[in-house]
Amino acid sequence: MTPFKYTRASDAADAVRKGAATGVKFLGGGTNLVDLMRETIERPGELVDVSGLSTEIVETDEGGLRIGAGVRNTALAEHRRVRTAYPMLTRAMVSGASAQIRNMATVGGNLLQRTRCSYFYDEDGSRCNKRVPGEGCDAIEGFHRGHAILGASDACIAVHPSDMCVALAALDAVVHIEGAKGARTVPLVDFHCLPGDRPDIETVLEPGDLITAVELPPMPFAAASTYRKVRDRASYAFALVSVAAAIEIEDGQVRDVRIALGGVAHKPWRATRAEAALRGAPAGETAFAGAAATELAGARPLADNAFKVRLAERTIVSVLCELAGVTA
């Protein structure tokens, strides 16, 4: 680890002030950042500990939830309102990492998790455009079984590893940010970037920007939502594919639907094409399969991750069938 200075922020304004200097990183639970610092992939000169800030979950006037960025993953997962009104979020939280890591990791930090691509981690021995823009990507012709099938570029095929963010993408979550120019909000689906030719730019955050909260709008039909994670190990493994979904059915027809995918792209992937195809369609396996195929039509898999296309389609159909109470 490169030497750094450790300070604590007293409040958000203090954090934003401290964060304006170059080389400063905010520290939440540290579950990803400390690891990356030990690998010397991250080399901040100063860590500003923001883990004690904004640790509350409050109901909004609209009937949604505002989740402080410092809320620990476990606290979010076990929150009563989350469990009843947004169960897909609880399910996503408890399928991520291990209980110990969930006790440490914060919501804000979870949004900023970096990819687990082996070549990104191999700082000494491999090329990675995320670490060194323009250097090249060793994953494209290397081990890429776990890599992106949607929205990838010639520069980067890494995937975003978060489970939580997939549920947040499906739930129309909004990220609250404070920065030098004041406070602003960004929809979660716009918060993360696709790699393009600058995979080192992963979010829309400007230097010094602090995530203060994530807000969930009310979504009554999300009370019956779910999250399905497919992985190589029965627990404590990153997703090969995951699906967060909520569906509202009226008279056998899909009135509204939310679908987001994990493990398939550089960002949590909101399946807007599938959603559009489903709205107004009869709730049944045929429509679900058609919608899934529509979404995955844009997939550009490589040799070893082609299975993810079929896996994603099948998992979407299965999850929607489960929520709709129809047999696949």
């Binding site: 687990r116 082996s118 070549y119 981690y121 191999d122 021995g125 491999s126 060793d138 012709e141 290397g142 081990f143 190589d232 190990r233 029965a234 627990s235 404590y236 493994a237 990153f238």
Partner: peptide, 29 residues
């Protein structure tokens, strides 16, 4: 079901030198 050391033949280098990427069975398995 899960164990494999990924040896990148292009460089003769092990690419998953970690317990998060080399899967050994956990309790749930």
């Amino acid at each position: 079901l899960m164990e494999e050391t990924q040896f990148d033949e292009r460089k003769g280098r092990v690419l998953n030198p970690s317990l998060s990427e080399y899967h050994v069975p956990v309790h749930m398995d």
